[in-house]
Amino acid sequence: MAEVLVLVDHIDGQVKKNTAELLTLARRIGEPAAVFVGSQVEAARPRLAQFGAGKVYVVDNPDVTGTLAAPLAEALAAVVEQASPAAILLPTGAITKEAAGRLAVKTGGGLVTDATNVDAGDGGVATTQSAFAANYTVESVVTREPAIVTVKANTTPPQASQAGATVVPVDVTVSDVAKAAKITATEPKAKSARPELTEAQYVVSGGRGTGGDFGPVEAFADVLGAAVGASRAAVDAGWYPHSNQVGQTGKQVSPQLYVACGISGAIQHRAGMQTSKTIVAINKDEEAPIFELVDFGVVGDLFNVLPQATEAVKAAKG
């Protein structure tokens, strides 16, 4: 059976949950093998073994990092050359998608991004995606091997399946053109104590109705253990960072619970959140289109409703 490569998402060897999800999906198509970029593979191995990686291809080269797509694509191409996999699964992200795109051009393999499901299919790897602001669900087949698929987080429950996780070093020489674009400075953003937006089980978002005061939104998010999102209107007004924007031109989220506060629910916003399992909205305007989507809605002022809900949740949680 051919191998299925999974690009490991990790911070200094700490493997993220989405990698376990991808290894679980990879087992449906072939023999899972991990691709680890970095120098701390020993820290990552136990978890990769736990979720079924028979091999771990290791690219430990200072020219290859998670922040530049061109060198990453060359590294992946070198692994593909060595492993001849049936498919490569990558976590969906800005850089990984671009690396996947370049890999598709290099290998001639077919590319699907933002998949919510992956399976073995007739005539190639079968994938599921959303289209047109998540108004459609699309089933595709990747007709050219290797199938290259980026998969969204939180789409499959990880299932353990012990394997050897044998380390296989891969030599990569990064081309001059791939090194030509350089990062000259990095300014880390203040790390939020809140969960990451695209990985969060709960998301509380604020829009125009906050008038720029996200205090009640953040307080409610914190009592729920939620990530904080923002509508484009709120981001364009400079009230909240762009990295928290939910919508067509921001993040697409699909949490267990999405709470929209003072957000009207334009198509641009719906595109980013309407696949959420449960949707709750608070809006002063009873005609706001967001109410068409909700499981529960409160017509009212978020500055009254949210603090009361925060206290009630606190009390309920004891």
Binding site: A104, E139, Q274, G297, V305, A309
Partner: peptide, 27 residues
């Protein structure tokens, strides 16, 4: 290298309960 084999319109979400805040909306 890829082909869409089917597309399905997402079923419209069923609107749930909408309440008007009369001092107890948060509760």
């Amino acid at each position: 290298g890829t082909k869409v084999v089917s597309f399905t319109a997402r079923p419209p979400r069923q609107q749930g309960e909408i309440v008007t805040d009369e001092g107890d909306g948060g509760t």
